[in-house]
Simulated assay, not measured.
Amino acid sequence: MKNLKAIALALTVVFSTLSVSAQTKKVDVSKSTINWVGKKVTGQHSGTVNIKAGTLIFKGDKLAGGTFTVDMTSLNTTDLSGESQGKLNGHLKSEDFFGTEKFPTATLVFKTVAAKAKNVYAITADLTIKGTKNLVAFDITVKGNTATTTFNVDRTKYDIKYGSGSFFDNLGDKAISDEFELAVALKF
């Protein structure tokens, strides 16, 4: 009889644990932002790129997953204006950089999510840019209906080598950093 009670209790715990189902929350793309910063020897440029679609997955109140599609054709420089802005935007969208005509979107898919501290999660994710997928790691903070993160991406891992001192000699003050920074603020 004790064994039956123990089994019944164990099954109750298992089924109550399983009943915490995943909840998918759609990212509000009109209120979410991605800001980027690219650095070079002589300074830096900054701008934005839009999220096309995204979801975060929760189990109870804990982050459990996420998938995002970024509209690379929306790539925009915000620290310049006029002709200079148009030229840099065009160059960033060209084959030298993101090749947005052939690769209009980039994707990010969470692979692992681990609680790190209250409201902070360590994420590993597959980031696909220009058809090339690499693993990235970053921390994300989730509070209420907002999630924020900042992380660096090594562009050379996605065959974006233009102006890279890692691949070209004698660039002098024309060298561009291999990494660019993304600051992401999601509303859902």
Results as ranks from 00 to 15, higher is better:
T132F: 04
T24P: 03
T107D: 11
T124N: 09
M72K: 13
D154N: 15
D79K: 11
N152R: 05
I140C: 09
G144N: 14
D173L: 03
I176L: 10
A185F: 01
T150W: 01
V41T: 15
K102W: 00
S74L: 03
N145R: 12
K62G: 06
K187Y: 01
L108E: 08
F180D: 06
V109M: 09
F167I: 04
G43F: 01
I123T: 04
V136L: 07
G38I: 04
I140E: 12
Y158D: 03
D169S: 15
K26E: 12
D96W: 13
L92T: 06
T24C: 02
E83W: 02
I129M: 10
L11A: 15
G163Q: 11
I123F: 11
P104T: 13
T17R: 00
Y158H: 10
T33H: 06
T150D: 09
K111A: 14
K187S: 07
D173N: 13
S21G: 13
D169T: 15
D173Q: 04
F168K: 02
D173H: 03
G66D: 04
S19H: 05
A125P: 13
V27I: 13
Y158V: 08
A122D: 15
L56H: 08
A183T: 11
N3E: 13
A22H: 05
S164L: 11
K52M: 08
E101C: 04
S74K: 07
N145Q: 14
G47V: 01
A183L: 03
L92C: 07
T100Q: 02
A183Y: 03
D169P: 13
L4Y: 14
I160P: 08
G99D: 15
Q44T: 02
T24G: 04
K5V: 13
V70A: 06
T78A: 10
T33F: 02
G131C: 02
K174I: 02
G99W: 02
D169R: 09
G144P: 08
A10K: 00
V70G: 05
L171M: 02
E83L: 12
T124D: 14
M1K: 14
L56Q: 10
L18H: 06
T149R: 07
Y121S: 08
K102I: 07
Y162K: 10
T124E: 15
T33D: 12
V113Y: 07
S166E: 09
S21C: 12
G38W: 01
V13N: 00
D71L: 02
T128L: 01
A8G: 12
H91K: 07
F138Q: 09
L182A: 07
K62Y: 05
K116E: 15
D61M: 06
S164Y: 09
F138K: 08
V14D: 00
L182G: 01
A175D: 03
F168I: 05
K59V: 14
T112R: 13
N35K: 15
V184E: 03
A117C: 11
F98N: 04
P104V: 12
E101S: 15
P104F: 08
F103C: 07
K52C: 06
A106K: 06
V184F: 00
A175G: 06
T69K: 09
T78V: 08
P104S: 12
F151A: 04
Q85Y: 03
N35W: 07
A64T: 09
K130G: 07
F58L: 13
N170L: 01
E179K: 12
S19Q: 09
A183C: 00
F138I: 09
L88M: 07
A64G: 08
T149F: 09
T78N: 12
T148Y: 05
K39F: 00
T12F: 14
